[in-house]
Design a protein around this nucleic acid. Structure first.
Lengths: 189, 189
DNA sequence: CCTAGACTAGACAGGTCTGTCTGGTAATGT
DNA sequence: ACATTACCAGACAGACCTGTCTAGTCTAGG
């Protein structure tokens, strides 16, 4: 038994192609709206191969969201000068992303809208992400010596969600410029 | 021809039952997840009757969202003392609703997540609602003599969306108490 | 009385969905 | 040389989807 078995199941060209396709299609068109047949066709993968790597569609959906978690995590890490500025920079980055052409809102919010059951594995991934993001904001606020860090982190999370929604449903250009002042008003400079 | 034809098509016991059932099921379980068969079964209505009142499922979905618009509009109207207090009261009402047991987020955000095409009739209803809400906030801010009413209205809309998402995905109890201070920080009093 | 229309019950067509299963190819490591 | 395993192609089952259609009941207005 080569060191293949599990390792290659986690990383293989076919699996990668499926995941990339799922990332694009699920995000752009919604999860229930995209069938397995469509994914394997556009990924150029046989059905048996797909079900070899992902026992069910739900597994693929979870993997898709984990992928999104990785993408976000990679962005938030880089630090600016002061903790205050780091917070502002995180939100300005969000403001920019929401203006980009393909933006279709927050992948986690959209996924949760399609999975009402809070106990569903998909919702677990969403919960983990949100908890991580909230804690990260709180830590930044604590570093900045902010009083009432806990509550302010909740407000900032609400702002983030609102920006993501607005970027998708309203005119994205209008929301962008307001981001910086919204953050400073909330954290009270 | 009695004054029936169109009038009764707009208001009839069967149609009402269908609409009420759709309101409950679509909101609680999502739109794609609930089929016509399920709706007509729980509404106690024949299929032909359903398709008589709603030519397609999309028509029902639009009617469902219009129904939600009516519900929200009815709430926002009542006025408090000062314009500032009216704004706060609107948001405290939102804060309360998000804590209630059956809360499953904003019906419009959830619907939009399932209808990616911005030109789709469903999205038109969503757009109309958001425009109305944004304008209402702006008018209240103008009445309050607020400078920068336009931009502040955007922030408040973002806050509303964030509250709706948080009430659905996070612990609803934690977000509630922060609402009032978030609003006052944003409108800068 | 009679007729238009709102309604019920349910079969049906044509499509899509997830997931299984068969059968075969190619590469790789022992 | 051989076994494992990653992969491809595609048929298939069984369920569910939307929307149409037939056939018949009940009610109220003229």
């Amino acid at each position: 038994m080569a060191p293949t078995t599990i390792a290659s199941r986690r990383e293989s060209p076919a699996r990668r192609r499926v995941l990339d396709t799922a990332l694009a299609l699920f995000y752009a068109e919604g999860i229930h709206a995209v069938g397995i047949d469509r994914i394997i066709a556009e990924a150029g993968v046989a059905k048996a191969t797909f079900y070899h790597h992902f026992p069910s569609k739900d597994d693929l959906v979870c993997a898709y969201l984990e992928e999104q978690v990785d993408l976000v995590r990679r962005r938030v890490v880089p630090q600016g000068i002061t903790p205050d500025e780091r917070i502002v920079s995180v939100f300005e980055a969000i403001g920019e992303i929401t203006c980009k052409p393909g933006f279709r809102g927050c992948a986690f919010i959209n996924a949760a809208a399609e999975y009402p059951d809070p106990e569903h594995p998909v919702r677990r991934v969403v919960d983990d992400f949100r908890r991580w993001f909230r804690d990260t904001l709180k830590d930044l606020l604590v570093d900045a010596g902010h009083p009432d860090a806990e509550r302010t982190a909740l407000m900032l999370l609400a702002l983030r969600d609102g920006l993501a929604v607005a970027g998708d449903l309203d005119d994205p250009a209008t929301a962008g410029p307001a981001v910086r002042s919204a953050v400073t008003r909330l954290i009270g400079t």
